[in-house]
Simulated scan of single mutants.
Amino acid sequence: MSSSDIFIGETIGTAILILLGGGVVAAVVLKASKARNAGWVAITFGWGFAVLTAVYISAPLSGAHLNPAVTLGIAITSGDWGDVGVYWAGQLLGAMIGAALVWLAYYGQFHAHLTDREIVGAAADAQAKAVEAREKGAGPVLGVFSTGPEIRNAAMNLATEIIGTFVLVLAVVTQGLNNEGNGLGAVGGLMVALVVVGIGLSLGGPTGYAINPARDLGPRIVHALLPLPNKGGSDWGYAWIPVVGPLIGAAAAAGLYNVAFA
């Protein structure tokens, strides 16, 4: 596959991934959404279906990595590093596009949520609360775009992301690769989607299971740029964990694969 096919495939696929994955979070948490309060199970299955849809759309072009950690794991196991930068660039751009599409799809709900007095406080306090949020951490809708911990402890949060991504990448490199070994095949796509659901149900509680640096960083950048009223901060102090943790987890999974399976 050519570099242009890889870039286009990863951009489209990751945009679909974030549109549907971020979309289910928006559906569950935003005011005036018919799916509000549907719960964690809806979110985890929504993300699983998002992975499945994105994989089948993008696999013919790029092999459907859709995740810099998956790309890193495949590069380590295969020894082919030639297109890693192209994959990562497409994934980050696609994640940003997908996050912007979630904002467009739920534009009215974002506005209703962020102007609700019970959510952002009285009008007289809104500006002060927004400043405080920018300085101290996450705004009230950041969870639609990116992840955050329930208990803020860098070592624990990093370990959770490492472990979750380790499971994901080990599943990809042992079961999910196509015949060329450079991406997800048809059956592999279904298997990985189910693994993502399993990770969300079993390991997603502490941090929201980013397990994908582009999935977290791209939408976080979009959150910082969007003209959302009373949006608060983008929690940049935490942002390194869902980037570094998945990359470490991917490298560990690929290392184990090379020792035990290759």
Rank of each mutant, 00 (worst) to 15 (best):
A38P: 00
T11W: 05
G22M: 01
L203H: 11
P229D: 13
I119K: 04
L190W: 13
W240F: 15
T165K: 11
L226D: 03
V222N: 01
A75C: 03
S234F: 08
V28K: 10
A95L: 05
A75E: 03
A251N: 03
K231V: 03
P229Y: 11
G176V: 05
A154D: 15
R152K: 11
T165G: 14
A224W: 13
N67G: 08
A155S: 10
A26E: 04
R117G: 01
K31D: 08
N182Y: 10
Q127M: 09
A126L: 07
N212D: 15
S78G: 15
V120C: 00
L226P: 02
I43M: 15
L101F: 07
D235H: 06
A254I: 05
G48N: 04
T77D: 03
N153H: 13
F45Y: 03
D235V: 02
A154L: 14
V195R: 09
A224Y: 12
W103C: 02
L66V: 10
T77C: 10
S3M: 12
L52Q: 02
D83M: 09
V102C: 14
E150Q: 09
T207F: 03
A138R: 09
L217D: 04
Q127L: 12
L104A: 10
N179A: 15
L104R: 10
W240Y: 13
T71V: 06
G164H: 06
L19C: 09
Y107K: 11
V222G: 02
M1T: 12
I162R: 04
L225K: 12
V173G: 07
A262G: 13
L190D: 08
Y238Q: 04
G13K: 05
L19F: 14
G90I: 11
A75Q: 01
A123M: 03
L92D: 05
A95F: 08
A262H: 14
T44N: 14
V131M: 09
W81K: 08
A26R: 01
Q109G: 08
L72W: 06
F166K: 07
V167W: 08
A112E: 08
G48C: 06
F261N: 09
R134F: 12
V102M: 13
A64H: 04
A126F: 01
T174S: 15
V196K: 07
I199R: 14
Y238A: 09
I163D: 10
G139V: 00
I43C: 11
A251G: 01
A38D: 00
N230D: 06
I97H: 07
T147S: 06
A123S: 06
V28S: 15
N157L: 05
L194N: 05
E118A: 10
V173C: 11
S58P: 01
